[in-house]
Design a protein around this nucleic acid. Sequence first.
DNA 1: GTGGTCTAGACCACA
DNA 2: GTGGTCTAGACCACG
Lengths: 131, 131, 131, 131
Amino acid sequence: MTPHTATLFSIATGSSEPIYRQLVEQVRRLAAAGQLQPGDEMPSVREIAQQLALNPMTVSKAYGLLEMEGVLARRRGQGMVVAARAAPAPADERAALLRPVLERAAREARQLELDPDTVLTLFATILKETP
Amino acid sequence: MTPHTATLFSIATGSSEPIYRQLVEQVRRLAAAGQLQPGDEMPSVREIAQQLALNPMTVSKAYGLLEMEGVLARRRGQGMVVAARAAPAPADERAALLRPVLERAAREARQLELDPDTVLTLFATILKETP
Amino acid sequence: MTPHTATLFSIATGSSEPIYRQLVEQVRRLAAAGQLQPGDEMPSVREIAQQLALNPMTVSKAYGLLEMEGVLARRRGQGMVVAARAAPAPADERAALLRPVLERAAREARQLELDPDTVLTLFATILKETP
Amino acid sequence: MTPHTATLFSIATGSSEPIYRQLVEQVRRLAAAGQLQPGDEMPSVREIAQQLALNPMTVSKAYGLLEMEGVLARRRGQGMVVAARAAPAPADERAALLRPVLERAAREARQLELDPDTVLTLFATILKETP
DNA sequence: GTGGTCTAGACCACA
DNA sequence: GTGGTCTAGACCACG
């Protein structure tokens, strides 16, 4: 199955986060969650670049990093596919990927002197909104 | 009252976030939380620079931005003070400052296909650890 | 279209007004007047710096402020462009930008006890000279 | 006659223009206009400093400059008086003092592409409002 | 003493 | 190529 570019990625060009990193992290998460299964063919660099109006080098850089990480694999003449070892991770490993952003949120909450219950309630609300 | 530099700031020089921005955001949150009260004198550029081993211009840049934002005010020849309009914000306004990072966390959680309860439990744990 | 540096800016290095602010205000006015259209590419920091014999950081500071203001936008890796929302302002809005300096002139005229007609005549003369 | 501090000066501590310069220019204009007559005793440094909540050194610096300029004169034990040669200037000399600010306004008007008539009408309005 | 400005030059991240 | 960040150090303006 070849995932559709438009469905897969959501890039915020206005964000301060580098585009290539947005791509890398999204693929990483999608692979960990199993939305990208081992063997799935990734869209070509050109296709992504065109559809998202990005510089092909930006996409290429993301793919390169993902290959180094072992999330994607290069198949000669066939483009990139999701790597075998990128099997869906168990919930606790996926949770580990979420830790950094949660730790940052906790640090900010403390500096804002918000009490944990308020924060958790707010977060619960947002979790329901988002999907 | 003059807050103590060492107590006020914790800078991660290794982080990818620019130092001046770390300073800006910390001051912004401390003012919102009321740990910095209107009228409080901020440590001088040189003092912060020395204690945190930073270049004075880096600190100065942060102060300049905070002044533009209206969080700090310049008292000519006497350093910066916390601005009058930087009164401690009510809890709901402070919570609003936390929204962006929580929304980001929610987005990542969804891409990781983690169920909300797991995420909330993890966050609760982290919130207890952090302080 | 890429405006020419030399044509765009006239910097008075001798003035007490900081160079970066001279740049900021000129760009702001040129954008308001429509001489800089949304989408126009601005000259690069290095180009301006070289042509006006300034330090690149000085120019960079001006660009940074103009970006914060929303007058310019950064196109990663491709320099700055005039922001979309920086559309040419109608005459009355542009006139509003002129008010502060006119108010100052009026205040000074009053302290000099010059009668309004004299002042207006003088100003009319200067307006004809200047262009 | 001793002019009253509060009536004489209007200081904008928020402005970017140095306080001592605001003082200097105001005295200069008032003397040129004849509102301060030769021989008039100026308020003491302390009095001005207290009433306007300024640092006495700031006031002192302004007085020093005005003395150097010949606008004020030091009378031992009597404080500063308006200098003899600071006689009210004829209208054309006073107009000359107004030129710089008018030239700046003209320059800005041109960059804003405002036509001279509009500018003059606006200025006429402001001149009527201000007093 | 305070902060502001500018220069010079290095290094990095991004595209 | 682009702009961003940081350092080091000088000088100035202000109070």
